[in-house]
């Protein structure tokens, strides 16, 4: 049963254009998803249906790929996406404590977004700034050598600068 399409018309057109750009080839599915996500921020079900139709593959296959790779997401991110590095270097220098503190301050779990849409929380494996461990990224900015007590101040600052 086809679900009601809620995406804006121009988004639909843009996604279709992305599919066309890659020749509607099933082999280009991951590239298409990368572009679609950078366009829209996330990959809602409707968008996956459009891509499946254009590439002539079952929507289950698109869904299978989207859920397989951690880079793809089906939920919209917050205005300031937070990522806590859980690479080994950050882990042994205490990043788990940072994660607990962020969860507590924002009252969200990993993978969730705050109700006001400001922050979303994710974990990632290694930013590559191991010299600054433990590391948290908010948007494009990397915060290094953090302790749990620094978290609230940083989040307040980011929220205040909106």
């Amino acid at each position: 049963m086809a679900k009601e399409i809620k995406l804006a018309c121009n988004v639909i057109e843009q996604v279709e254009a992305i599919c066309d750009k890659y020749g509607n080839q099933p082999g280009e599915l991951i590239n298409v998803l990368h572009e679609a996500q950078s366009l829209h921020g996330y990959l809602p079900e409707e968008m996956q249906r459009i891509i499946a139709r254009k590439l002539h593959i079952p929507v289950s296959k698109v869904y299978g790929v989207v859920t397989f790779y951690s880079f793809f997401t089906m939920t919209p991110k917050g205005k300031h996406p937070i990522s806590v590095c859980l690479g080994t270097a950050c882990y042994v220098r205490g990043s788990e404590g940072l994660l607990e503190e962020i969860k507590r301050v924002l009252n969200i779990e990993v993978g969730e977004t705050t109700p006001d849409g400001k922050f979303s929380l994710d974990c990632l494996r290694c930013v590559g700034a191991c010299g600054l461990a433990p590391v948290v990224t908010i948007g494009d900015k990397v915060y290094g050598r953090l302790q749990p007590k620094d978290i609230k101040k940083i989040l307040d600052e980011v929220a205040a600068n909106d």
């Binding site: 991951i30 590239n31 998803l33 990368h34 397989f68 790779y69 951690s70 880079f71 793809f72 494996r125």
Partner: peptide, 8 residues
């Protein structure tokens, strides 16, 4: 260039 999408 081909992109991975985060899968170890």
């Amino acid at each position: 260039i081909r992109y991975g999408a985060g899968a170890f």
